[in-house]
């Protein structure tokens, strides 16, 4: 499988009046052609910042990519000029935002917003652009595209708007689609429809998808691989099966325990106590140590090494150390 995206040791910081927030602190991620990678984690863990960095959409200032590389098809996005980045945005990499109610410009017609990307990047006639836009609307499941093209965003429902946003993102036939919480602002029934739409589109176009979410239900439905982020770091990655059935990091386990399940009656949800660390001055050791039920002394002092459990399953945790394993075996 071809590696389409390779993020190495990405550091992103934001300068604020209170000091520098280290939102992303050494993220490593890779994405293969045609797969869906879900990035999960709680609010403020750096998942959206990571996603925005890929397209260089971090507002600078105050944000800044401090270190690391983002290789998209072998090209380092962090080194490109603004003009070169603009040629990639919307063409090779597209993005879908969380709230469809605000992602569309209220003063422009849907048709105008759909075709402007096409007309910017491909030298085609208005008529041809309209034709492609209408085909795209049909693909994402919007009936009467001819009439709908002339309408304004306020004439659509939330679910319909998200379909339009998806159509907008797909119109130039991108190779990578980044969806930042695409279903969070939608009703549950609409959520399912939108996820189905993602699957259908991926099957038809072979687009690779990065899905950012805090909803593990969404992940379970469509992700091939999962990356769990915490306090600006990826702490565990693995296939959907590996993460759901054999989670290794105590944080991943905590996340899974805090999701309601239909197949286990009467079980109480176990929340993770405490709050994530302050990223103005992140802790030296494992950022989760303060909340971790299994924390050892070493966890608060040194960041754990990277363990490879299988070709696809990686985790950053001291519990993977041989000495910890031996100790656990002797006590439990």
């Amino acid at each position: 499988m071809e590696k389409i995206l390779d993020i190495r040791d990405l550091h992103v910081s934001f300068k604020t009046f209170g000091g520098e927030v280290q939102a992303v602190r050494g993220v490593n991620l890779e994405l293969y052609r045609g797969e869906t990678l879900a990035i999960v984690g709680e609010s403020g863990c750096g998942k959206s910042v990571t996603a925005n960095s890929i397209m260089r959409l971090i507002p600078t200032p105050p944000g800044e990519i401090k270190d690391g590389s983002i290789l998209f098809k072998g090209q380092d996005m962090t080194q490109l000029s603004d003009k070169e980045v603009r040629k990639i945005r919307g063409v090779d990499i597209s993005m879908i935002f969380q709230d469809p109610m605000t992602a569309l410009n209220p003063t422009l017609t849907v048709g105008d917003q759909l075709t402007e990307g096409l007309r910017q990047h491909r030298s085609i006639s208005r008529k041809e652009a309209d034709k492609q836009a209408m085909e795209m609307l049909t693909l994402v499941g919007i009936p009467n595209p001819v009439e709908r093209m002339k309408q304004y965003p306020h004439e659509f429902s939330g679910g319909m708007r998200q379909r339009i946003v998806i159509a907008m993102a797909l119109i130039c036939d991108p190779e990578l689609l980044i969806a930042d919480e695409p279903t969070t602002a939608l009703d549950v029934t609409i959520q399912a429809q939108i996820l189905q739409l993602f699957q259908k589109i991926q099957k038809q176009t072979g687009v690779s998808i990065i899905l950012i979410t805090h909803d593990l239900g969404v992940v379970a439905k469509i992700a091939d691989r999962i990356a769990v982020m915490y306090a600006g770091k990826v702490i565990e990655t693995g296939t959907r099966k590996e993460i759901f059935y054999t989670p290794q990091h105590p944080y991943t386990r905590g996340l899974l325990h805090s999701v309601p399940r239909l197949d286990q009656k009467g079980e109480k949800l176990i929340p993770i106590d405490g709050t994530p660390p302050d990223l103005f001055s992140p802790p030296e050791g494992c950022p989760f140590a303060a909340r971790c039920p299994m924390a050892m002394e070493v966890c608060t002092k040194v960041y754990p090494f990277h363990s490879k459990l299988s070709r696809t399953h990686d985790v950053d945790c001291w519990l993977q150390d041989e000495r910890a394993k031996k100790y656990m075996a002797s006590t439990y």
């Binding site: 945005r89 919307g90 992602a103």
Partner: peptide
């Protein structure tokens, strides 16, 4: 700071076009 401005940037539009077409009218 609106999302649709970010969306316009994500489409790869030029800054001039974003300001005149998307921002100024609003």
């Amino acid at each position: 700071t609106q999302d649709y401005i970010k969306m316009a940037r994500a489409k790869g539009l030029s800054p001039a076009k974003i300001i005149v077409k998307h921002a100024l009218k609003n």
